[in-house]
Amino acid sequence: MSESWLNQKERGSPLLMRLITWITLRLGRPAGRVMLVPISLYFLLFSRRARAASRLYLRRALARKPHWLDIYRHYFCFSATILDRLYFLSGRQDYFEIDVHGVEAIQETLRQGRGCVLLGAHLGSFEVLRSLAVQFGEVPFAILMHVENALKMNAIMNTLNPDLANSIISMGSPDGLLRAREIIESGGIVGILGDRTRPGDKTLPCEFFGATAELPDGPLSFASIMHAPVALGLGLYRGGRRYEVHFELLADSLEAPRALRREIIQGHLQHYVSRLEHYCRIAPYNWFNFYDYWAPASR
């Protein structure tokens, strides 16, 4: 599992990525999207492992045997959201029709001066959530992530939007979590993608589409230690220029003594996974974990 997505070579050359960036930003999104057709077809033909993972997932999410067109749509959806990141990063979110649900829950929490953990997933686009940060007022906003993973994309991001690049906190160092602590304590939002496990992460088993998947307990442990509320945040891509953003309060407080923490977190983590499953059924092609999600934990 975890290792399999780390070991997967980042496909696509930096040159190709720069070319697509140039085309999209100069000639517009429709021109950029034309490029996505051959790219998706290329992956459909040549990425054996990702294709197998896509098929495995789609069989569960669609509750039927996936057709190759389904897998093509899955890839196309993925590449389309990556392309749109360029637009979001360069501040052109006005181009999109963004339908927002449930933002009140977070606004209310923030109004009380409580910082919150925004738990996302590799389901749809996290970028669209970030572009909505203005709706939360002037609160600090940062994303806690394993920076080394997305180096190539970050290079482009750095040039397009240095401010956003600065809002990324590296996980896995004491400094990083101290920074995240400061943001929560000052009433801000810390975004974390909670659905991927890395080797060495502590995990908990959760049921996802009727089978067991191992998810990291780190994000919820962080929320629990900080006594911070946890909200789910997903930006589903619905085709064309449409995005649908869903916020849900997952837990108002995860307070738990250390000895009981894993048990309490387990319940909340399962709730999170069940909500992911719900949104996967609504927007099945938005699931962007192209590896065997249900493979047993390798530690």
Partner: peptide, 11 residues
């Protein structure tokens, strides 16, 4: 200790 432990210790 991991980074979560360190955070808890800092608190």
């Amino acid at each position: 200790l991991d980074s979560i432990d360190m955070l808890e210790l800092s608190l």
